[in-house]
C-alpha cells in the first residue's frame, strides 16, 4: 500500500486558523438543538398564551381561577389522588416481597416475574379494558347466585371504583418492579439480610427494619411513577365511565376550552414537580445522604 502522507497537502487558505478544530459539527448540533427547542417549547408557550388571552382585555389569569371553581374539579382530583394512593399501597405490598424473594432465595422466579412485568407493556391498555368491561358485564349474569356477584357490584362503586385500582396496579407493575429491583441491586440485600439474620432477626423483622429503610428512595421513585401514571390515565377510566381527573378535563373541554387548556398546563406542571422530586430523591440516594 502506497504511503499517503507526502501527497496530501491542505491548501493554505482552507487551514483553520488556531488549533485547527473542525467547525462543522457545531453547526449541525446548533441547528438540531434550535429546531428541537422550537418544536418542544412552542406548544408549551402557546398553551399558556391561549389560556391568558382574554377576548377584550388582552391578558387575564381568569382561566386558572376558574379551574378551582369549576364543577367537578375537586371531586375528580380527589378521586384520582385517592386511586393513586390506593394503587401505590397495593403495588408496593405486592411487588416488594416478590422482588426481595427473587434477589434472596428464588432467582429462578426472575424470568417469570420479568415476563409478568413485561406483559402489561406489550398488551395495549385498551385491550385490557375491553376484557375487564366484558367481565363486569357478563359477571352478574353468570355469578348472580354467588357471593362474587356482590363483589363485582362493590368494585364498581362510583365513589371509589376499586376496579380501577386493580387495573392500575397491573399497569404500574412493570415500573414499580423495575425500580424496586434496581434499588435492591444497589444495596446488596443479600449481605444485609444475612448480617441481620446472623444477629438473630426474624424474616419480617429483616424486611421491616433492615430492607425497607434502605429502600426508601427506590420506593419513593416507584410511588411517584405510579402516581404520575394514575393521575394521567384516561383510557380505562373513560371506558369504564368513572370521572377521574383526566376524564373531567375531557368533559369540560367541550364547554370551556380555555379552562381545559389551563388544566392541561396545570397538570403538566404537576408532572414536572413529581419528576423533579423523583430525580432529586434519586440524587440524594446517590450521594448517600
Amino acid at each position: 500500500m502506497a504511503s499517503l502522507t507526502p501527497q496530501v497537502t491542505t491548501p493554505a487558505g482552507s487551514a483553520p486558523a488556531r488549533g485547527g478544530r473542525p467547525r462543522r459539527p457545531r453547526v449541525w448540533r446548533g441547528v438540531v438543538l434550535v429546531i428541537a427547542a422550537v418544536y418542544f417549547l412552542v406548544p408549551l408557550i402557546a398553551s399558556f398564551v391561549f389560556t391568558v388571552k382574554a377576548p377584550n382585555q388582552g391578558f387575564s389569569l381568569d382561566a386558572y381561577g376558574k379551574i378551582f371553581s369549576a364543577e367537578g374539579f375537586g371531586g375528580s382530583l380527589l378521586l384520582s389522588l385517592g386511586l393513586g394512593i390506593a394503587t401505590i399501597v397495593l403495588v408496593l405490598l405486592l411487588t416488594l416481597p416478590a422482588a426481595v424473594a427473587v434477589r434472596l432465595g428464588a432467582p429462578r422466579l426472575r424470568p417469570v416475574l420479568e415476563v409478568v412485568c413485561t406483559l402489561p407493556l406489550v398488551v395495549p391498555p385498551i385491550t385490557f379494558v375491553a376484557g375487564i368491561s366484558t367481565v363486569l358485564r357478563w359477571g352478574p349474569d353468570y355469578l348472580a347466585s354467588t357471593p362474587f356477584y356482590q363483589t363485582i357490584i362493590a368494585v364498581q362503586n362510583p365513589d371509589f371504583p376499586v376496579v380501577l385500582v386493580l387495573a392500575y396496579v397491573v399497569l404500574a407493575l412493570p415500573f414499580a418492579y423495575r425500580s424496586l429491583d434496581a434499588g435492591l441491586g444497589a444495596i446488596d440485600v443479600r449481605t444485609l439480610s444475612e448480617a441481620a439474620r446472623n444477629l438473630g432477626a426474624s424474616w419480617p423483622h429483616v424486611l421491616l427494619r433492615v430492607i425497607i429503610p434502605n429502600m426508601r428512595s427506590a420506593m419513593a421513585s416507584a410511588s411517584f411513577l405510579t402516581l404520575a401514571l394514575v393521575l394521567g390515565e384516561f383510557t380505562i377510566a373513560r371506558l369504564l365511565s368513572f370521572e377521574t381527573f383526566p376524564n373531567w378535563i375531557y368533559r369540560i373541554s367541550g364547554s370551556q376550552a380555555q379552562v381545559s387548556v389551563a388544566v392541561s398546563v396545570f397538570s403538566l406542571l404537576i408532572t414536572w414537580l413529581l419528576l423533579l422530586a423523583l430525580s432529586s430523591a434519586g440524587a440524594r440516594q446517590r450521594s448517600g445522604v
Binding site: 499517503l4 497537502t9 488549533g19
Partner: peptide, 22 residues
C-alpha cells in the same frame, strides 16, 4: 492540533493533514 509548531514526517509538513490521511 498544535497551537504552534509543526510536525514533519520525512521532511513533509503534516501538521494540517486530516487524521484519516496520515
Amino acid at each position: 492540533h498544535p497551537d504552534e509548531g509543526e510536525i514533519l514526517v520525512d521532511g513533509a509538513d503534516i501538521t494540517r493533514v486530516p487524521a484519516n490521511r496520515r
